[in-house]
Amino acid sequence: MSFSADWLSLREPADRAARDDVLLHRAAAAAGPAPVILDLGCGSGSTVRTMAPYLPEGTRWRLVDNDPELLDLAKAAAGPRAETFCTDIADLDALPLDGVTLVTASALFDLVPETWVRDLASRLGVPLYAALSYDGAMRWTLEDPRDAAVTDAFNRHQRGDKGLGPALGPDAVTRSVAVLRDAGFEVSQADSRWRLGPDAAPLQRMLVEGIARAAGEAGMPEADDWGALRIERSTETTCLIGHGDILAVPRGTPKEERHALR
């Protein structure tokens, strides 16, 4: 699993606008007074840049990705104290969890299988902030009669193997919440849907290209025609793409720390 720097840069403002502010602030508080944050699938450092204003000076980041070029960008965002780990998140035993106070991930949990979430949860004794997981919902205005069929095909594709086994795809939020609760976490969730208007036409166009390609691979014969029309209409279209944020805190967190998370 890897994504281009261009795509990550284009989507970052939409991600930041979509994140639930309450959960973002609570996640920053959950990292504690001397944060050591492990960011899984860090990409170019979007989570670092988003959380930085809410974290104390001296926050230390451990950045994990399998793309060395993206790791360099993320390290530049996180500062000289950041550590980078060029490794695949499939190897949970290799994750540098010792001393970590918060684990973060963005736009990741929809790409992994439920077994991976369960195995990660079994290793964690600290809070987890997993933001911007796709939840299967798409709505477009102007509407097209093929929208529902394309969404269904895209969602089938999202449940395919992204390198770790059959992905949670549009079930990522609901299943991850259930797994984390079963593992002994108190879990809060919030909506973080994208709202992309004509001002986000370049992002819409790149998004539509990916949706149409995936829907076609999943057997939707009209996906290319749908995509061409959506791209043509991007300067007059608004779309809502569903995502969800999760904050999971281990049960038994001391009362004084729990108060800081409210």
Rank of each mutant, 00 (worst) to 15 (best):
D191G: 07
M220D: 15
I231Y: 04
T174P: 01
H243Y: 12
Q204P: 03
S234D: 06
G163Q: 05
I211T: 07
V177F: 01
D199H: 13
A172M: 04
H243R: 12
T237Y: 01
E232I: 04
A200R: 11
D171Q: 09
R195V: 13
L196D: 02
V177S: 00
A218N: 10
R233N: 14
S176D: 07
S192L: 08
W226Q: 04
G163L: 03
M220W: 08
C239V: 14
A201P: 05
G197Q: 07
R230A: 15
L240K: 08
D224N: 11
E236Q: 14
T174Q: 09
A190F: 09
E186W: 10
P198D: 03
S176T: 14
V173W: 03
G165P: 00
I211C: 02
L229N: 13
L196G: 02
A178Y: 02
A200P: 00
R233L: 15
A201K: 07
L240H: 14
A172H: 03
V173T: 08
A214C: 10
T238G: 06
S188H: 13
T237N: 03
V177T: 11
R193P: 06
A190E: 05
Q189H: 10
W194A: 08
L196P: 01
D199L: 11
S188P: 06
E232W: 12
A190H: 10
K162H: 12
L229F: 11
V208C: 08
Q189G: 09
A183L: 03
G163M: 03
G219I: 14
T237V: 06
P166E: 13
L229V: 15
A214Y: 09
L229A: 15
R159N: 05
G242R: 06
K162Q: 11
C239L: 15
G165E: 03
L207K: 02
I231T: 13
S192I: 04
M206E: 15
Q158P: 05
P170M: 06
A228Y: 09
V177I: 13
P221D: 11
P202M: 03
M220V: 11
T174S: 14
L168S: 02
Q204E: 05
E209I: 08
R181T: 10
P198K: 12
G219T: 13
A201C: 06
W226N: 08
W226H: 08
V208E: 10
Q189D: 11
R213Q: 11
Q204V: 10
K162S: 03
L164H: 08
I211M: 09
P202T: 07
R175V: 14
